[in-house]
Design a protein around this nucleic acid. Structure first.
Lengths: 225, 225
DNA sequence: ACAAAAGTGTTGTCCGTACACCCATGT
DNA sequence: ACATGGGTGTACGGACAACACTTTTGT
């Protein structure tokens, strides 16, 4: 008895946009679930690694290249795809939306960013996958500085704060948060101010990755409650 | 072009035995890596879930039934198996060694518990898988009470302490550790004492799972440094 | 002048950590 | 009586949480 199981990859791509957490979805061009929104992904080719497969599919379907990628979970219920048995190895990805122009192609009829609180019903078991990714994001945010992979290179402190509140779904004390982040000394304050229409203009910041790696090596722990 | 990829499951089974952390391994009966020690596992059947496949393989190869099981990671490098392309979905499992009699069968020539610091070179990429499992165990131990899945139902407080020291690879202050664990109120102190040959006899404890679930629902957090 | 967002310090509480002696048993 | 492991309390310091007013701009 020979196995007949296909292997696919799917990616949950997060980006921070319009002061909210967003997810990248494609509209399926083909059956099953034709016309439904779904996570970008597809079958793995014979000789490519799983990571390469994810990057290829994202490039093909959405024109996005990824800043941060890690494996999320593998889904393998025998009936999760109505056609054949398909195991999907899913990935968790972060991008800076302002750095990419999304564009549908191949299997995708359309690509779009969806705010995390305005999601459509997804194809297959993709709702479950997305839920798992949200949990991972929430946890990861507290012990690794991945927030910076979601923002533009230069960002407002208030956006970092909003990002944390949006993902952790709770209010954060502005003073305590700034104090904590600043104490890590991984932010560079730039000599640039930005006025967002009204209110006092705000300073721009940059994440200092080099300094972060240095501190990490010395045994420092990033940790935000 | 049709995909020809096999899907397997492999399990890293941890148990606490002889005051040390141990791993369950099998000696391979067949090529490749015939005679090498390896993680228990095998190909997924057409209509079983991944979890079922793990449980079946463990039952068949080692005669162990699992107390705690969770997915670890999926390994998919094109050349990780010299025969065909095989994706392995790996699992992380915990058992109470004293509750099971291990016994080799089917693909296994032999089964044995190996202390974590006396491991042989493993077949395939199983060394890497094991490394990943150790990291997971270390992390998980600090924020979930999984230690109790490794010990017997009734255990000595000192064994819990040794287990933590053995897995976290550091000294733990006896008084502070006991204070912390006790403050959670998830241990039941039994009216039984055990003498280990010499020294003052020690009290036996039981993990109160019901109480743990109750506290967890109320938003309490298990957290050990 | 007012509305809107940015920026900034102090204080109390709680938790983690460091640390040393007595107890109950076996030999 | 001595060796061995079991069991227990206190005091200090650092980190977290709570909390409100001033500054700079646009309209």
């Amino acid at each position: 008895m020979i196995q007949n199981i296909r292997v696919a990859v799917d990616a949950v791509v997060f980006g921070y946009k319009d002061h909210q957490l967003n997810v990248l979805l494609i509209k399926r061009k083909v059956a099953p679930f034709q016309g439904s929104w779904a996570l970008p992904g597809g079958l793995v080719l014979e000789n490519e690694s799983l990571e390469t497969a994810v990057e290829r599919e994202l490039q093909e379907e959405t024109n996005v290249t990824i800043d941060y990628l890690e494996q999320l979970y593998s889904f393998g219920k025998p009936d999760r795809d109505p056609r054949n048995r398909v195991i999907s190895v899913t990935y968790f990805a972060l991008v800076k939306p302002s750095h990419h122009e999304i564009k549908a192609d191949t299997d995708a009829q359309e690509v779009a960013w969806f705010p995390i609180h305005e999601l459509p019903k997804l194809a297959f078991d993709h709702d479950i996958i997305l839920e798992k990714a949200k949990t991972r994001l929430r946890n990861k945010l507290t012990y690794e500085p991945i927030g910076f992979d979601l923002l533009s290179t230069k960002f407002l402190f208030s956006d970092l704060e909003k990002l944390y509140m949006s993902i952790l779904e709770k209010k954060i004390d502005r003073r305590n948060f700034r104090k904590k982040i600043m104490s890590f000394e991984i932010l560079e304050e730039l000599d640039e101010k930005v006025s967002e229409g009204r209110g006092r203009p705000a300073n721009l910041f940059k994440f200092n990755k080099k300094q972060y790696f240095k501190l990490q090596k010395e045994g420092f722990l990033f940790d935000i409650k």
